[in-house]
Amino acid sequence: MTDPRWGEAFSTAFAQLTALWPDKVAIGAAVSGLCALMETDVALAYICFGALTADMTARVAVCCKRNRPLCRGLKRALPRYVCYLVFIVMAWAAQVAFQRGLHVGLPIVDIMLAYLILTDMASIIGHLHYLGVPVPPVLKWLVFGGREQLKRKAREAAGRERR
């Protein structure tokens, strides 16, 4: 058995991570600035795009299991980043319109991000189930039930604002 040289592996990984530090700080500052502009939670934005990336990875794994081309999975997954950004910008425009027109502060962007997160989690659970990964029933209930509850709350909030 050969020595894996753990110390050397950790120092190499640390050096690679620190080499990218300025770029990561710049990207993090840009995301935080956009979230501050949109008056939304930064953590929700990171969770949303993290869940989208996990969903894309699971989608590609399903394509591999089905012996379908990898490009087909990426073709369906990559445009979702652009669509999510469009949805978030539209939610932000609606939020600004409510604030300026009706002087009502609704967290529309946060609601949209939460909905997108729950949608991705439901998709990830579906992909994992297809791949044969055991998914606890309580997790299925939380994700699918949470998405339905979020839809219901959004409908109730929209109904109250119209009156």
Rank of each mutant, 00 (worst) to 15 (best):
W6N: 09
K65D: 11
V89F: 15
P69G: 00
G132E: 05
A19L: 14
T12Q: 09
L85F: 10
W21P: 02
A94V: 15
A13D: 01
R160F: 06
Y84M: 10
P22H: 10
P137F: 02
E161M: 14
S32T: 15
F144K: 12
V25H: 02
R59M: 08
L52M: 13
K140S: 13
Y46R: 07
E148T: 07
I117T: 07
G7V: 01
M112C: 15
I125M: 01
L20K: 12
A97Y: 11
R152W: 05
S11L: 13
L118P: 07
L52A: 07
A13V: 00
W6F: 15
Q149V: 09
A36S: 15
G50T: 06
A45K: 08
A91W: 07
R152T: 04
M121C: 14
C63M: 12
K75W: 06
T53W: 10
F144A: 11
K140G: 15
A29H: 13
P69T: 00
G73M: 02
M1E: 04
Y84L: 03
L85T: 03
R59H: 03
P22Q: 09
K140V: 12
A122S: 11
A19G: 10
V143F: 05
T119N: 12
P137V: 03
A154W: 06
H103Y: 06
A36H: 11
I47N: 01
R160T: 13
F49H: 02
D41E: 05
Q99R: 13
G28I: 00
Y81D: 09
R162S: 12
L37Q: 11
A97E: 04
V31R: 00
V96D: 01
K24L: 14
I88A: 04
A77M: 00
W141H: 11
L85C: 05
K65M: 14
L150A: 13
Y84N: 06
V109T: 12
R66K: 13
A157W: 10
L34Q: 09
L52C: 01
L102Y: 02
V143K: 09
L44E: 03
C35Q: 00
G28M: 11
C35W: 04
F14R: 12
I125D: 00
A157T: 14
I47K: 09
V133G: 04
L113Q: 13
V133K: 08
S11W: 07
R59K: 05
P134I: 04
L128D: 01
M90P: 07
F49D: 03
V96S: 07
K75N: 15
D3I: 07
A29V: 13
A157H: 09
C35V: 08
M1L: 02
G159L: 10
K24Y: 03
I125G: 04
P137L: 08
A26M: 10
A51T: 01
G126H: 00
C63V: 03
R163L: 09
T40H: 01
Q16E: 15
A15L: 06
Q149H: 06
F144C: 12
A29W: 04
I125H: 00
I27N: 02
L52Q: 05
V138H: 04
G105I: 05
A91P: 03
A19I: 02
P137Q: 11
A13Y: 05
V133Y: 00
